[in-house]
């Protein structure tokens, strides 16, 4: 799920950035530092949308660096247990398949794939129903339900299932 929230961060800035462009430098450094990172609490920071305010800078003794407390608005993405997500399949093997929804890696075990879908090996491994009408392979898009999440400092892992109503393939690249 996406959230638009306000976060705060203390930014250290080198004195060479001081001057007319100080604010711009601060913002671009903030974007570089924060966008694409992951925090256990808020999930994945997708984009910074605006700066709320920049506090008073504090000069550090000895180094000359200045610390600014910056409040910024950003869009974060965090998966929740029970959430329905759409994801792209990245790898299919006999244990199940791996899929990605943006930065989130999701594993769907073959226990949680409907029983009528069977694994087919080969150079394009896939899960297929007995009548061949539905096929999950690399690059398929699937709708799945998250049953477990773990958010690390840098990565988000999820366990998913497609063994439920209205879950499964939503677009098949092979058929297209």
């Amino acid at each position: 799920m996406f959230f638009h929230i306000v976060l705060e961060r203390n930014m250290q800035l080198h004195p060479r950035h001081f001057g007319r462009n100080l604010r711009e430098n601060l913002v671009s450094k903030l974007m570089k530092d924060v966008e694409g990172t992951c925090s256990g609490r808020h999930g994945f920071v997708v984009a910074i949308t605006g700066i709320e305010n920049v506090g008073k800078g504090l000069i550090r003794d000895g180094t000359g660096f200045v610390t600014f407390p910056v409040k910024y608005q950003c869009v974060v993405f965090r998966p929740f247990k029970g959430e329905i997500l759409e994801a792209v399949v990245t790898m299919v093997n006999k244990m199940g398949f791996f899929a990605e929804a943006g930065p989130v890696q999701i594993f769907v075990s073959n226990h949680l794939i409907p029983d009528d879908m069977e694994f087919q090996s080969g150079d394009m491994p896939n899960y297929t129903t007995s009548d061949g009408s539905v096929k999950i392979q690399k690059d398929s898009e699937v709708r799945l339900k998250i049953i477990g999440t773990r958010v690390d400092a840098t990565e988000i892992f999820c366990i998913g299932t497609i063994k439920d109503d209205f879950l499964g393939v939503i677009n098949d690249p092979a058929a297209a």
């Binding site: 791996f98 594993f107 075990s109 477990g148 999440t149 773990r150 366990i159």
Partner: peptide, 24 residues
């Protein structure tokens, strides 16, 4: 997977079973 049970999603201890890091 990522220290969660692949069947029920529950958090598990890290060190049981065999790692299959080459797969994922």
């Amino acid at each position: 997977f990522g220290e969660m049970c692949i069947l029920c999603g529950q958090r598990l201890d890290a060190d049981s079973g065999v790692t299959f890091g080459y797969i994922h």
